[in-house]
Amino acid sequence: MPDLPAPTRLNRPSGIRSLRLGDTKVSYAPDGAVRLRPLHLLPDTTDATWAAHPEYLDGAGLLAGSVGALLVEHGGRALLIDTGIGPHAFESPDGPLHSAHGGALPDSLAALGRRPEDIEAVAFTHLHPDHLGWACEPLLGHAEFLISEPEWADRDALDPRAAQALAKNVRTIAHDEEVFPGVRVRIAPGHTAGHAEYVITGGGRRLIAFGDAMHSPLQASHPSWSSGFDHDLPATAGHRHRLAAELAEPDTIGFGVHFADVVFGRIGATADGTPPSWRPVDA
């Protein structure tokens, strides 16, 4: 069973981390970081919840999270899942988001031995700004953009400039379609109308890149806790219960793009009878 994360890993954004799934390599490629207001992010929590879990909070009492992309490499080919924020920064005076910034993805790809032109396609989990940022920049203008059919159909809320930047390269994808060797999409609405996850298999293991189905490792222990960003709270909670059960199965790993410095992990039982919790997987 993987070890429990060191407390410091839960309140800092992740650096580059990689795993092998047989002949496929998956790597978290950081773009930046996000800081979130815990009571707004998870409205079912209370001050007492966070007093019991101070390891998740930074010195200002905010949740620290990661923002970036998942690089999938197989047979010399390269796919990105999401693209981070891009060269931008955001702040909000209220609500779940306190602040976020990006810009590091090109350097992260270089550190992983990849040029932007090596990326043949970007598969999006959904079209929120912290996932599509670099797709609106020249950096990835050559790549095909893979977006679930219902997510693209619901694009009216997008900034018109973002919609225009995406439109020229979009190919819509359907549930259970293979989008890259060993990578299948499954559509799990709730966070957004067409939110997608990607299941990557290889070497007898599978990895579920679950996008924003969960924002914090605490939701692995409390799957009924929906996020303040979720479009349909009951649908997301129901899906999260099913996802948590999957992530407790043997040889199954999750990828939580916002999960501080524990982006890869699985859900494991505890010895003291408390709810199963997120356990980092680093190899």
Rank of each mutant, 00 (worst) to 15 (best):
E197D: 14
I119P: 05
V281T: 10
R12D: 00
H215V: 12
S66G: 08
D154V: 01
L112D: 11
E151I: 07
A163R: 15
H53I: 00
V122N: 04
L41N: 05
E249T: 14
R114P: 02
S216N: 14
W278H: 11
T192N: 01
D230H: 11
E178L: 01
P87Q: 12
A167T: 15
I147M: 09
K168N: 08
P189C: 06
L132Q: 10
L19M: 10
R35F: 09
R37D: 01
G22P: 06
E178C: 03
H142D: 10
Y198I: 03
N11T: 08
G268I: 11
G256R: 05
P275I: 00
H231P: 00
P181F: 03
L41K: 07
V72H: 13
D282E: 15
A209H: 13
A271G: 13
G273A: 12
P93I: 02
V262G: 11
G59E: 15
H98A: 14
D23R: 14
G61A: 12
G22H: 13
A29R: 09
H101I: 01
D261Y: 04
A111P: 00
H191F: 15
L19R: 08
P129K: 02
S221Y: 01
A33H: 08
S226I: 01
A110K: 15
T24I: 12
I81E: 13
L158E: 10
A143W: 08
Y198N: 04
V262A: 15
R37W: 02
E91C: 07
I85T: 05
W152M: 03
F259Y: 14
R37C: 01
I208P: 02
L243F: 08
D251F: 03
A193K: 12
G141E: 13
P250K: 14
S148C: 07
G32M: 00
S66W: 05
T125S: 14
R37P: 00
W225K: 09
G254W: 06
G133A: 00
L63D: 01
D3S: 14
R20Y: 00
D251E: 15
I81M: 13
R37E: 02
E177A: 13
T252E: 02
S227K: 05
E73V: 07
A78L: 03
I208M: 06
L166S: 03
H231V: 01
H231I: 03
G86V: 01
P38S: 06
H239D: 10
S277F: 06
V170F: 10
E144H: 05
R184N: 10
P150A: 09
V185H: 03
K25H: 03
E73G: 06
T8M: 04
G75I: 12
G182R: 11
L218H: 12
E117N: 12
P43M: 04
L112R: 12
A29T: 13
E137D: 14
S66Y: 06
L132M: 10
V26L: 06
P30K: 02
A174T: 15
I85Y: 03
R155V: 01
F180A: 04
P129Y: 02
P280V: 11
L243W: 10
D31I: 07
V72P: 09
K168C: 09
D176N: 15
P217S: 11
L132R: 11
A60V: 02
G102C: 04
R242W: 11
V26H: 08
P2D: 08
E55F: 00
R114S: 07
I81P: 14
I200G: 05
H40Y: 01
D31E: 07
